[in-house]
Write a protein that binds this DNA or RNA. Structure first.
Lengths: 206, 206
DNA sequence: CTGTGTGAAGGCTTTCACAGCC
DNA sequence: GGCTGTGAAAGCCTTCACACAG
């Protein structure tokens, strides 16, 4: 029994490989080399091999990786093999966009409910979504056993809403609010801040 | 003249500090300590100091940083002091959401035009946006001297559109398409992939 | 005495070089 | 011969410890 910790960055790249594999695996007859897959994933072949090797022998020497086997294995490892229920909190500009975004469902995530403090948001909701008031949060989270949340409320409200999510058993948050959330170490937060991404790019323009 | 390279991660955190500073600088009378700012930014005080020190002496020992001076300096360094024109290409689900997102303008970025291969997208556009056909890309980019683009087209179209952007002088791309773009080393790409962020979170849920 | 600036140490990730299997 | 798996080396970033300025 090994006691190696797997780097966060490796986990992240696993998702990238997973996507790349799904995009190209009908173009190849059964197997991929680390070199081929690394190229479309934008990494070096050695890195890909090291990443995969954390989880045991996955390829055949002299041949490569069986693309279908690898895809399945990645899917299991990442926990995306089964459908994950997700809630979305904050149906403003960005939130309603995310509700309409088809990308989530396609990748194994189902938004089971959307919440907003303002019931008036009902009318703006795309695609016939029902926007629940915050009071129903607890009930819905427990009923569907939801463990993941998408947080797209304004910055000032974010920490309070976050606390509410944590109190109801949420273990992972995709945070679009422009603040660093304070959470216990067993809760995972991934931040997405579009303004920061743009600002970061502008640094590199001479 | 020092010849030190500044880590990419440092540049990224600079944006975070910048945001945090804007959020809290009316709460303080003139100066911030590295400890206070680091706390809201979610980093260690030493890291913040080292990050800032890459750009010379910015604080006063025994006192801290003058919050207004620091804010201005960060703004200059990041290139967000002046308004940057940006174009958005791909007005699908996500693209139209981004068009409606107020966050960009607030942070010094102005979307000067939106493009889509399908002129039918006109009707879906929020807020009275005119959606230009791809044929006008070259003209608009040159006229407004646009250097940054937001790319939200479907994966299969992304590389071709990217090449077109590069041919017209684009130097930085915020990429929402689920592929790794092939670009020359002098072009900067920041990837945002919501499905990957969610999948990544799902790994950490036991 | 307070809080920044910084060389040095430490830790983590990536890359290399090559052993091992097909 | 081809390509994976992996210990060792290199590189990069973070953290520490403390000098130094207000």
């Amino acid at each position: 029994m090994k006691e190696v910790v797997i780097p966060r960055k490796t986990i992240y790249r696993l998702s990238v490989y997973h996507r790349c594999l799904e995009r190209v695996n009908h173009q190849l007859d059964g197997s991929v080399s680390s070199e081929a897959l690394a190229r479309v994933a934008g990494v070096k072949p050695t890195q890909l091999r090291k990443d995969l090797a954390y989880f045991g022998q996955m390829g055949k020497r002299g041949i490569g990786y069986d693309s279908e086997v690898l895809r399945k294995r990645l899917s299991e490892l990442l926990g995306s093999a089964k459908l994950h229920p997700v809630v979305l909190v904050g149906v403003g500009n960005l939130g309603s966009a995310l509700l309409g975004y088809q990308g989530f469902a396609k990748e194994g995530f189902e938004i089971v409910a959307a919440f907003d403090a303002d019931p008036g948001k009902q009318s703006h909701a795309p695609g016939g979504w029902t926007i629940h008031p915050m009071e129903q949060l607890s009930e819905v989270l427990r009923k569907h056993e939801v463990k993941m949340a998408i947080l797209s409320v304004p910055g000032p409200a974010a920490q309070a809403v976050c606390n509410e999510l944590l109190a109801n058993g949420i273990q992972a948050i995709l945070n679009f609010a422009p603040i660093i959330l304070q959470v216990p170490p067993n809760v995972m937060v991934n931040n997405v801040n579009l303004a920061i991404e743009l600002e970061n790019l502008s640094y590199f323009i001479r």
